[in-house]
């Protein structure tokens, strides 16, 4: 294992909630990518976390942008860097850093455009599974069964009825050279995968699992534990796709795997779920896991060898 980078590019003093997974995400990402990084951030929690004018807690250039523009903004930065005489643009990593709504809902068009154009950029979705900055409204990436302020359960059981939008698959269908899921509960592999992403050029996509204790109605001290349970229950599998080849990493051993129920039960946002819904979620997780395993096998063995 490579040494964990000591250099901090995110300073102390931020506006995140206690236990914020997104705060970890930025910190670890910048440790991996280093100072030759630009970050463009749309409307999201991270539009507020760096601090209110004139404060700012990042040691890299930070361009705030409109909600739906992350991919396009990264394209613009990259295009301009290519024209700069004082910059070796190949030495600069251009990162678009957006939440799940900004990436998968309102920003999906700009993301699709940027990666289809083969823009040299890392597009990051830090996934806290709802519009958290505006007060916990459902996004397309909110998991099935969750309470949010716009899926308020009520007396009619009106929780989020649709499964989580699968951004890794959507991105993969654009034929990007590299995409990976990472989890803030595992800083070593988090940093390792970002460093790996940095070795590629062209469009890369990183899906960060970033628990939000505030929005998930969990204890702030459980943020990292939530990450571990999501991983062990296979609710959020860790995998990467390199030129079409799937690779599951940090795979939980069979005897380590826990029921999804263990993950759901420490979150208030799932507390209303009847037993049959928990079973349904478990079934979906199992199916998705099987699919992922088959994709891995197919792309590693049959398709490419």
């Amino acid at each position: 294992m490579a040494e964990f980078p000591e250099k901090e590019l995110m300073n102390s003093g931020h506006n995140a909630c206690p236990g914020c997974g997104a705060a970890h995400a930025m910190r670890y990402m910048l440790k991996a990518l280093g100072k030759n990084t630009t970050v463009n951030i749309p409307a999201c929690c991270w539009a507020v976390i760096p601090g209110v004018y004139p404060s700012r807690n990042l040691e890299v250039p930070l361009l705030y942008t409109a909600f739906e523009t992350t991919g396009a903004s990264s394209s613009g930065i990259r295009a301009a860097l290519k024209k700069r005489d004082d910059v070796d643009d190949a030495e600069v990593e251009v990162v678009g850093f957006a939440g799940d709504g900004g990436t998968a809902d309102i920003g999906i068009q700009a993301l699709s455009g940027a990666i289809e154009r083969n823009t040299d950029t890392i597009q990051v979705m830090y996934d806290n599974e709802a519009y958290m900055n505006t007060g916990i409204q459902r996004s397309g990436v909110t998991p099935e069964g969750a309470w949010t302020t716009t899926t308020p359960v009520g007396s009619k059981g009106d929780w989020k009825k649709q499964p989580k939008k699968e951004m890794m698959e959507i991105v993969e269908s654009h034929n990007v050279p590299y995409a990976a899921t990472v989890n803030i509960a595992y800083p070593d592999s988090f940093v390792e995968k970002f460093k790996k992403a940095k070795e590629f050029s062209g469009p890369r996509f990183m899906h960060i699992y970033a628990p939000c204790p505030t929005g998930w109605r969990a204890r702030p001290s459980d943020a990292v534990e939530l990450g571990r349970l999501a991983h062990k229950s296979r609710f959020f599998p860790l995998f990467e796709i390199e030129h079409g080849k799937y690779n599951i990493y940090k795979e939980p051993k069979e005897d380590e795997v826990i029921p999804v129920k263990e993950y759901l039960k420490i979150q208030g946002r799932f507390r209303h779920l009847p037993e049959e819904m928990v079973e349904k979620i478990q079934k979906r997780v199992d199916t998705k896991w099987e699919q992922l395993k088959k994709k891995e096998r197919f792309t590693q063995e049959e398709l490419y060898e």
Partner: peptide
């Protein structure tokens, strides 16, 4: 001698011009 970003919408056209201009390029 220009970088022509062939975007997927006018919204993205101006968004990328903004980012390019903020990075010091004539857009």
């Amino acid at each position: 001698d220009a970088e022509f970003v062939k975007v997927e919408s006018e919204h993205s056209a101006m968004a990328s011009c903004i980012a390019a201009s903020a990075t010091g390029a004539r857009a």
